[in-house]
Amino acid sequence: MLMNNHIFTAFSDPNRRRMLDILKHGKRTAGDLSSSFDISGSAVSQHLKVLLQARLVGVEKRKNSRIYYLRKEGFEDLQQYLGQFWDDHLTVLKQLAEAEEREKEQ
């Protein structure tokens, strides 16, 4: 039902929310990000993996480094999900209400 559960998972951790805040200000390498956190480099990598899965963050692979950036499309997913959710359900409501109305008229 929740179209992109990864988005909800991604937002559930304070470190990941802070990473998104930092990436709002521009691209960063994993090393840049690590220096802002008191957690291990591998923990930072794990968090970045979750953000990548949620498609909130993208990565550019360079020769010696990976550069992370915020994907605005990821945030639009929620909006899209909401629209799709109501389109699907209102279509069913329409069918039900119209069927009930026809029965009443008979």
Partner: peptide, 19 residues
């Protein structure tokens, strides 16, 4: 974040309201 939708339903408001 916000969406708007409009749908025409061939039923009375009272019928739809109950849903």
């Amino acid at each position: 974040v916000g969406i708007k939708r409009e749908i025409f339903i061939e039923a009375k408001p009272s019928t739809i309201f109950s849903y």
